[in-house]
Simulated assay, not measured.
Amino acid sequence: MSAKLGEPVDTGTAIAEGRYSTEEAARARQRAARVSDRPAPDLAADAGRLALSRAGRDPGEIGLLVHAGCFHQGVSFWNTASYVQRKVLGHGEVMAFELRQMSNGGMAALELAAIHLSAVPTVPAALLTTADRFAEPRFPRWSADRGLVFGDGGTAMVLSRDPGRLRLVSTATYSEPSLEGLHRGDDLHEPPADPGAPLDLRARKQVFLKDLPVTETIARNEAGMLTAVKRCLEDSGSDITGMAAVVVPFFGADLAHKQCIDPLGIPEEVTLLDYGLGIGHLGPGDQFAGLDHLIETGRVRAGDRVLLVGVGAGFVWTCAVVEVTHD
Rank of each mutant, 00 (worst) to 15 (best):
A223W: 06
A96C: 02
L273A: 08
F139V: 15
K258R: 15
M157D: 00
P267E: 13
D254W: 15
Q85E: 12
A135R: 15
T171F: 02
E190V: 15
D304F: 02
P249V: 10
P198G: 01
N221T: 15
G237P: 13
R141Y: 14
L291I: 08
P8F: 06
G90S: 11
G237K: 05
V270M: 09
A197N: 01
V324A: 07
L64W: 00
E323N: 10
G90H: 08
K4S: 14
L168W: 08
A108F: 13
A55F: 03
V88I: 09
A156Y: 01
A25Y: 08
E234S: 12
E323G: 07
L182D: 05
A45G: 06
G12K: 02
R27N: 10
H257L: 00
A135I: 04
L43C: 01
G314A: 12
R167T: 12
H326T: 12
E216H: 11
E24H: 08
R202Y: 09
C319V: 03
V270W: 06
T130I: 01
P140Y: 00
G18I: 01
D274W: 04
D292Q: 10
G105V: 14
H189K: 06
V247F: 08
S236M: 07
D37Y: 10
G252P: 14
L128W: 06
A313C: 12
D292M: 06
P192N: 05
P124R: 15
G185M: 04
A256W: 02
G285V: 00
A289R: 03
A3D: 11
R138S: 14
V306A: 05
L199P: 01
D58L: 11
A33H: 09
L201M: 09
Q259R: 14
V321H: 08
L65R: 04
A47M: 07
L168H: 05
A203I: 02
D46F: 10
D200V: 06
E176P: 01
L179G: 08
T171C: 13
L212C: 10
F315L: 11
R34S: 09
A203N: 11
G6A: 06
V270P: 02
R231N: 14
S170G: 02
R29S: 11
E17A: 15
F251M: 13
G154H: 03
V246E: 07
R49C: 07
D132K: 00
A81I: 03
V84T: 01
A223L: 05
T155V: 08
A223M: 02
D262E: 12
Y83E: 10
G280L: 05
S103T: 14
E190A: 05
R34C: 12
F250P: 06
S160P: 09
G92S: 14
V246W: 07
T227L: 10
E296R: 12
A223E: 10
L64S: 03
R31A: 14
V214G: 13
T80E: 06
A125T: 05
C319M: 03
R220L: 13
Q206T: 09
G154K: 00
K4T: 15
V309T: 13
V300K: 09
L117I: 13
L110N: 01
E111I: 13
F250G: 00
G290Y: 07
V120D: 15
A32Y: 09
K230L: 08
I279H: 03
A109Q: 09
A131W: 07
E111D: 11
